[in-house]
Design a protein around this nucleic acid. Structure first.
Lengths: 208, 208
DNA sequence: CCTTGTTTTAAACAAATGTTATAGCGGATT
DNA sequence: AATCCGCTATAACATTTGTTTAAAACAAGG
């Protein structure tokens, strides 16, 4: 079996799909465009993934794979016995970089999070399993930190609200980017001041 | 000329379009479904609006028409010479109700803001004029309030950031609803505690 | 070198969909 | 009553698009 070619075209399809889906959304993205970007045949998607929908499911799986944050998590790592404030700050910094750091090809925010945003606007049937398998564990980590910080159990209502508030704050520039980019006079983008934004979220959070 | 029928089917098409676009997005929405909901013919869209795209443009115009907030603005009105905190609170309360108050047909947030969210996820060409004509004036009102509250000129960087932060906070439950709705155990929706959420945003804002 | 299993390719298909052409209908005007 | 005009209805068209089919290319094993 042609193993090398196998994983190559399949991988190429996946990466191309991430880009095209992020740019156009599921419905507007065509498998022809994806295949063209991946330099593969039109039938490649159906051969390797079965259908356009399954390819999208694979993209979602790949998108919310936790291993991609490992590098960033190391970069902002603090000791496990550091004060809660510091660990909370590290958490925020890590994810802000994860969301807004360019991965090299596009001028806007990371493709993965563009897809995430589209799932929030028009959820697909895959979102159910996505929340259960990936996102809820994300939220669990944050809840633990907030719980420790506030000194109340993780199931407390206040912890849930605060965690969601922190989580939301990190997405706000991503959400509003289409508007802020069209403001005149133009405003600087978040990406150019990532540290400042992180500090802003952190101080705002610890104060509230 | 058949005036009554004229405006009726045109209006019915517009309202149906709002609902269908809000539910499925521009691309996935079909003019056949819109016409069916409006109890009109398939050709009605092209006759009255020229094209599906122009219909969508009309929907956007209708969506961000400011007159719809008039009723709410009166409901939460405070005197013009009231303290800035009160006017800011009124502003926040008004828009939170505007965003999350059901208009009677759907279980989720208002259709107009669902469309807004989709525009943030995958902006259409119409967004440019939309920001200039409607949204920027929205933002201007808020900036004036924040400027007065902080005691710095409206062009100051801090005012911009704070205004955007307030604006974003109001949208956060809308943005995260697809996730929170899928959490288990289920969490109560924002709509059921609108006042509490408004108070939360207000206190959080005035503190920061 | 032939066979076998896997991948790629080109062509075609079937369904969906925005749009249009054309005829029909109803009320208003003359 | 005849005509005109705006609106509606039916059918069809052209294009796009996901998917399939069948053949060819290819790599590996015997």
């Amino acid at each position: 079996m042609n193993r090398t070619n196998d994983v190559n075209t399949k991988q190429a399809l996946l990466l191309a799909a991430v880009r095209v889906f992020a740019k156009k959304g599921f419905r507007a993205a065509t498998v022809r465009e994806i295949c063209q970007l991946a330099e593969a045949n039109v039938a490649a998607v159906n051969y390797h993934f079965g259908s356009k929908d399954s390819l999208y499911a694979a993209v979602l799986d790949h998108t919310f794979d936790l291993e991609k944050t490992e590098a960033l998590r190391e970069r902002f790592a603090v000791a496990d016995d550091a004060p809660v404030e510091d660990r909370l700050a590290a958490y925020i910094r890590t994810h802000i970089h994860e969301i807004y750091a360019d991965e090299g090809w596009s001028g806007v925010a990371s493709d993965h999070w563009a897809i995430f945003l589209m799932e929030m606007a028009t959820p697909s049937p895959h979102l159910d399993s996505l929340v259960q398998d990936h996102i809820q564990s994300y939220a669990g980590d944050l809840r633990a930190l907030v719980s420790e910080f506030l000194g109340v159990p993780p199931t407390h209502r206040m912890v849930m609200d605060a965690a969601m508030s922190i989580w939301s704050q990190m997405f706000d520039p991503l959400l509003m980017m289409p508007i802020t980019d069209r403001f005149r006079p133009p405003r600087p983008r978040v990406q150019e001041n990532l540290e400042a934004f992180a500090d802003h979220v952190i101080t705002f959070t610890l104060g509230g």
